[in-house]
Amino acid sequence: MNIRNKLLLYLLLFFSAFLLFFPILYAFMISFMSSDEILHGKFFPAAFHLENYLKVFDRLPLLKYLLNSFIVSTSVMIGQLIVCSMAAYAFVFIQFKGRNFIFFLFISTMMIPWEATMIPNFITILKLDWFNTYQGLTFPFFAAAFGTFLLRQNFLTIPKELHEASQIAGLNTVQFFIKVVLPVSKTSLVTLGVYSFLSTWNQYLWPLLVTTNDSVRTVQIGLKQLQTQETATDWGVVMAGVIVVIIPTLLLLFLGQKQLQKGLTQGALK
């Protein structure tokens, strides 16, 4: 590739990246602006002062919310990894009657939007009296068809000889699962972990439904609270909150990027 083509390609990449990243960039800029500046529609703030950030921590128990979100997202991540990997193991390595049928039944739940199952879930949580609890926020998400599917596809690529070799070596099912299957599928487990952490972190509707006070409320609801607290929303403060909230997301993305790419593309090429 000659220099001209390369230049063109990079220009194009730069432009697309800018387009994609613009809202976040703009939010970042706004978070440093005063209300006046925002109303004038400026892109760059006159000065980078941290007033809005101080305000957001002042107005909301943001640290508490962050901690809540972290606890909820981590629990869902761990729960999903455990449940999905065990389900996927059963679907791949254990022979039982109607295995494929049950698997497809399981997978077909992917076609039902989460919102449609919200009412039964809500009633269940209500009956269990799990309002304003971590378990109310996390339990409904432990069994995920997507995660099971992802891991099953990955487990299917494990050569059956590995299973047979460990049978001959005398490993039982649990030992084989923990010592062989899980370490071999590390990439997919990381992919699923990151994915479930992020999607839980960004959840809005469910936490809104099952929380009525600050005790276990998550950050996304906090952000919404910022917006409606006063008649005229102080966008600088809201954006400061947004930036604080997406930092963990970005961190996770940067750290897990390599694994994530591997996980999502693997099986595509063989």
């Binding site: 050569p159 000889e161 590995l162 070799a165 001959i168 070596a169 005398g170 071999v184 590390k186």
Partner: peptide
């Protein structure tokens, strides 16, 4: 299989990819 007191070598070797050679050898 484990109670039959035998060992087996597979066509594609069936080595555990996440373990070192030493760990592979003493795995059983």
């Amino acid at each position: 299989p484990s109670k039959r007191d035998l060992s087996m070598v597979f066509q594609n070797y069936a080595l555990y990819p996440h373990l070192s050679v030493e760990e592979n050898i003493i795995f059983g």
